[in-house]
């Protein structure tokens, strides 16, 4: 397995609490610890409201923790960094730019000259099989192609970490399976740490070296599950089934508990409202 023992990302007692305008406290992420090693592929899964998006935004530097710290390579994360690129569910492509120009945007921001940037951009597009579509605008591409362009744009600047926030959630099932395989291929070639947020448990078992299960109310880390299966994985495999079953059971517990809690809260609110 590609997992090394070099610590890459470390959440140390990191948490995030919001206060609404009425002063109400909302804990998006209860302070917790999480270590991710260099080259690891970690899937964050959990029901809605479990804080998985909060975690990835904290790690990517789009958001700051209200307690504890988030460190990458031993340094506190204070802002987004081109060494760590985020892939969004809605692609984040610029509609007025061609696929090539979208990829070039990242490279130009990095200060590459025109000739070298173009070479790198074309190579990145070739890496996701989109050479023939370089001159197309995003609206002329399918959802899967758009996400490939976003992936090419990210990989072109050679980041050491890829954050993916439900990247395949908007795609149809077949495209999703394709892109999962492509992502694993790309990852095999480049030594890159991937943090992958998903609500698709199958996807998590198929992709992850490790699955971090999260629970809601308040959002928190619940369970750490290494998936010790070699790649490429087989979804019909017995062992794959074993992990899936384990994950589903753990998820079910979290889910049921969340359901009970919200029901209890509702009763409390109804009781509290007084008649």
């Amino acid at each position: 397995m590609q997992k090394s023992q070099t610590l890459k990302i470390s959440l140390q007692h990191a948490g995030k609490t919001f206060y609404s305008s009425s002063g109400e406290q909302h804990i998006a992420l209860k302070a917790g610890n999480l270590d991710i090693y260099e080259g690891e592929f970690v899937c964050l899964v959990g029901p809605s409201g479990c804080g998985k998006s909060t975690v990835i935004n904290l790690m990517a530097g789009f958001d700051q923790p209200t307690e504890g710290s988030v460190q990458i390579d031993g340094k506190a994360v204070l802002s987004p960094d081109p060494d760590r690129i985020m892939i969004f569910q809605d692609y984040g492509l610029f509609p007025w730019k061609t696929a090539l120009d979208n990829v070039l945007f990242g490279l130009k921001c990095r200060g590459f000259g025109a000739v070298e940037a173009r070479k790198k951009a074309m190579a990145a597009l070739a890496g996701v099989g989109l050479t023939a579509y370089a001159q197309r605008h995003p609206h002329e591409l399918s959802g899967g192609m758009k996400q490939r362009v976003a992936l090419a744009r990210a990989l072109a600047v050679e980041p050491s970490v890829l954050f993916m926030d439900e990247p395949f959630a908007a795609l149809d099932a077949f495209t999703r399976l394709h892109l999962q395989d492509e992502l694993l291929e790309l990852r095999k070639k480049k030594k890159i740490t991937v943090i992958f947020v998903t609500h698709d448990l199958d996807e998590a078992v198929y992709l992850g070296d490790r699955i971090v299960l999260m629970a809601p109310n308040p959002g928190r880390f619940e369970n750490n599950m290494p998936i010790e299966l070699p790649f490429p994985r087989n979804r019909t495999d017995k062992q794959f089934d074993h992990y899936r079953k384990e994950l589903f059971e753990a998820f079910d517990l979290v889910h049921k508990e969340a359901g009970r809690k919200s029901m209890a809260e509702e009763e409390l609110q109804q009781g509290g409202s007084g008649i």
Binding site: P80, D81, F88, G92, C109
Partner: peptide, 27 residues
């Protein structure tokens, strides 16, 4: 907001954000 997030992420300079993102996005 995702346009700003992306350009931030790639380390775009304010001029690049203004000319390359804000103006064409608002066009």
């Amino acid at each position: 907001a995702v346009y700003y997030k992306v350009s931030n992420n790639f380390g775009a300079k304010p001029v690049q954000v203004f000319l390359g993102i804000i103006i064409p996005a608002a066009f």
